[in-house]
Design a binder for these strands. Structure first.
Lengths: 116, 116
DNA sequence: AGTCTACATGTAGGCTGTCTATATGTAGAC
DNA sequence: GTCTACATATAGACAGCCTACATGTAGACT
């Protein structure tokens, strides 16, 4: 279970929740499928370990942003998560926060006087 | 000592080092001035506490990216930090990492199929 | 003289999210 | 019978950012 190419995991902190919500925006998914979706959407850059995802999903459910139910398909049992109303709002908030976050950090990193 | 507007501190994780290096790129500064520079460059969004900055500066010095010396001006003593060669390389690496980081996270947050 | 604010550095300890490692079990292919 | 992919879950380590505290100087104002 190797780690993401060049992406340091400290940097992921505080952005996992938003990504999980984003992945679940238009379809309910179970944990394992969420990990695959993250890998695909990131072009292979993101390989999030189960020890990160499962606790995070439970946290988001406790917070009311996700709801889960067990779904059995072809002999396989999966806990499937979907966004709640609160989850949709949290996703919108996460996107807005991401925007200001990148503006601020990006601006500092580039240095003063650079607009682009 | 109030906190940054809307910026959650988990999100800062792993990006402080790069910002500190960026602020020191063209001129040596002491800790207190670095905090002010971060506030100015971020348009007031970033108000980093001393308990974050001073340990971080020491860490970066131990890592060889910064060098420090005590400078006394007008009765005031300040530990002034400057970038080393290794620090300049680390800053370049941080900028490159920031680019891929925002590409990856931004891409996932936006959802599939969106180029812009 | 006393007080207050801005300047200036520093540490101890807490919090919490991510990671590693481990445990458990099913389905299907070979 | 074994191996791989699928699938969920938890315990404990790790590390960076934060709060709170401790300490001290310079200069302005009263």
């Amino acid at each position: 279970m190797r780690q993401n190419e060049g992406l340091n995991s400290d940097a992921l902190r505080g952005h996992m929740d938003g990504m999980l919500l984003a992945v679940l925006e238009h379809e309910p998914l179970h944990g394992y499928a969420i990990i695959e979706a993250l890998r695909e959407r990131s072009g292979g850059a993101l390989d999030v370990p189960t020890g990160t995802v499962y606790p995070a999903l439970r946290r988001l459910e406790r917070a009311g942003h996700l709801a889960s139910e067990w779904v059995t398909t072809g002999g396989r049992s999966r806990r499937t998560y979907r966004l709640t109303g609160s989850g949709h709002r949290a996703l919108a908030a996460a996107r807005s926060a991401w925007q200001s976050f990148t503006d601020v950090i990006g601006g500092v990193l580039r240095g003063p006087g650079q607009t682009a």
